[in-house]
Nucleic acid binder design. Structure first.
Length: 484
RNA sequence: GGCGAAGUGGCCGAGUGGUUAGGCAGAGGUCUGCAAAACCUUGUACAGCGGUUCGAGUCCGCUCUUCGCCUCCA
């Protein structure tokens, strides 16, 4: 069964076929960098990270482009309010570009800890102003856009398909009852800004054929995705809340400019909620990742996210995180047991699990189902290891390869070589492993001498230090506990 | 008001007509010096009301409830 992707545009699952066989161009809306990332960002980028990983695992060469929005856009509607990055710069008494750079680094730090692979290209809006101007100029020349008073607006009426993604096609009906004010400057209330004149004191601004100003929000994604991925992108991802107006505007301006389909498969991930309510910066209920990482292993967060489908809302709670943590540990323990076990004669065949896992992922990236197959696998391996016959060298290698490929390489929830999920890096981690090995050797000695007081003391004190020891048939395995 | 999504056992969360999802928590057991882990056994849930069908959590209709978007937002 070939890969099926739910396409938001057709509202159905479709068999995935890229424009060019074997190659996938994928664009995902990146963050606006004026604050630290929260759990909502984590859900989005972990989800699309797994999409890219699965496509690569399936043999595609993937070019993943994810922008950084570092031009400030407005806090209010399209014509009012303050530039978000400029506002943050004012609050921090610094320059907008410093704000953007600072939070860009912060974003990647958090994503790295979540095991999110970096995009192949991470273009910034400020670095692509000429491309945006070129696109706007093309739209003006083809009469899809018009200039008023140093501002450039896209004419929605010039593009009959406007709103086809969100289903908001009747623009006149749409207008009644909304809070969008009618600006006399615009020809139609739904027209959106492509270029905005810089008012007095605006810091981030560029020269353009229409005067000094800055680009509108929607135009950067079109300009940058088409620059790096061509006029038709295979996959365009983003949060559901961006379907309208952002993605509908992207479609309008891109297709108006090129006359070609802009995106083959639109993918939208659902929201993170807290107590059933959307998590958002403005709602003051957002869970900052840096704070969350203080008490919860980032791998647990990643696992928690992948235990629900990307198109389902994910409700955050302490209890749910704890359940995920315990579940992930089970998988990691199996990986460790495989590493420690001595070859015996028992056989293990992972082919059926591979088939099931593949089917789950091919069905619109059903990670929760895929994870349930990992648990079935884990139980099966543990049972085999519990028996006298154990596992043969080949079977151990096969089972290890299964976990490293699907839990490691594809889902990214276990690391191949250790159980501490990588926030202790390099040499110091190796040292830690050796030191613990010494202590565990001493514990074995004590147990052999029936000195259980000493062996228990070693175990208890290691636990106090954050190292949990469990005895298996293969000997002691250990893991770091982030929670005391 | 318009557009869209969803309501599954104590909790989380899969399931696109017929046979066990899975995890966590709980109970009993095996194993273990003890503990933890592992393994075995244990839960007959699908918002409500109608309908289609031999058969529905799964299709159709209605009702109730929740959430998202319509303003920046992953």
């Amino acid at each position: 069964m070939a890969l099926q992707i739910y396409n938001s545009l057709s509202r159905s699952k479709e068999t995935f076929e890229p424009v060019h066989p074997g190659v996938v161009g994928m664009y995902v809306c990146g963050p606006t960098v004026y604050g630290h990332a929260h759990l909502g960002h984590a859900k989005s980028y972990v989800s699309f990270d797994v999409v890219a990983r699965w496509l690569r695992q399936s043999g595609y060469r993937v070019r993943y482009v994810q922008n950084i929005t570092d031009v400030g856009h407005l806090t209010d509607d399209a014509d009012q309010g303050e530039d978000k990055i400029a506002r943050q710069a004012r609050l921090e008494k610094t320059d907008p570009m410093e704000v953007a750079q600072y939070y860009t680094r912060s974003f990647y730090e958090d994503m790295d800890r979540l095991g999110v692979e970096r995009p192949n290209i991470a273009p910034t809006a400020t670095g692509h102003v000429p491309e945006q101007i070129a696109l706007i100029r093309q739209l003006v020349e083809s009469s899809h856009a018009y200039v008023v008073n140093g501002n450039v607006y896209f004419s929605v009426q010039s593009f009959p398909d406007y709103g086809k993604l969100s289903g908001r096609t009747d623009q006149d009906a749409l207008q009644s009852g909304t809070r969008v004010e009618v600006r006399s400057e615009k020809r139609h209330p739904s027209d959106f800004a492509l270029w905005k004149k810089a008012e007095e004191g605006h810091i981030m601004k560029w020269e353009s054929p229409w005067g000094t100003g800055y680009p509108g929000w929607h135009v950067e994604c079109s300009a940058m995705s088409m620059k790096y991925l061509g006029e038709t992108v295979d996959i365009h991802g983003g949060g559901m809340e961006n379907k309208f107006p952002h993605h509908d505007c992207e479609i309008a301006q891109s297709e108006a400019a090129t006359g070609r389909p802009y995106v083959r498969y639109w993918m939208h991930n659902n929201m993170v909620t807290v107590g059933g309510i959307k998590m958002g910066k403005s709602l003051k209920n957002s869970v900052n990742l840096k704070d969350l990482f203080l008490e919860t292993d980032p791998m647990v967060i990643r696992f928690f996210i992948l235990q629900s489908h990307y198109r389902s809302p994910l409700d955050f709670s302490e209890a749910a995180i704890r359940a995920s943590s315990a579940g992930l540990e089970k998988l990691q323990d199996t990986r460790q047991r495989l590493q420690k076990t001595q070859p015996e004669t028992g056989k293990f065949d992972s082919a059926a699990f591979t088939e099931r896992f593949t089917a789950a992922m091919d069905d619109d990236f059903n990670t929760p189902l895929a994870i349930s197959i990992l648990f079935d696998f884990s139980k099966s391996v543990n049972s085999a290891l519990d028996k006298q016959e154990g596992l043969s060298t080949d079977s151990i290698a096969e089972a290890t390869a299964f976990l490293d490929t699907f839990a490691g390489k594809v889902l990214g929830v276990i690391s191949a070589c250790n159980e501490t999920s990588g926030h202790i890096s390099g040499n110091s981690h190796q040292t830690l492993e050796r030191v613990i090995a010494i202590l565990l050797d001493m514990r074995i000695e004590a147990r052999n001498n029936k000195d259980f007081a000493l062996s228990d003391r070693i175990r208890d004190r290691l636990l106090e230090a954050g190292v949990e020891v469990k005895d298996t048939r293969e000997g002691a395995i250990w893991s770091l506990k982030t929670e005391p």
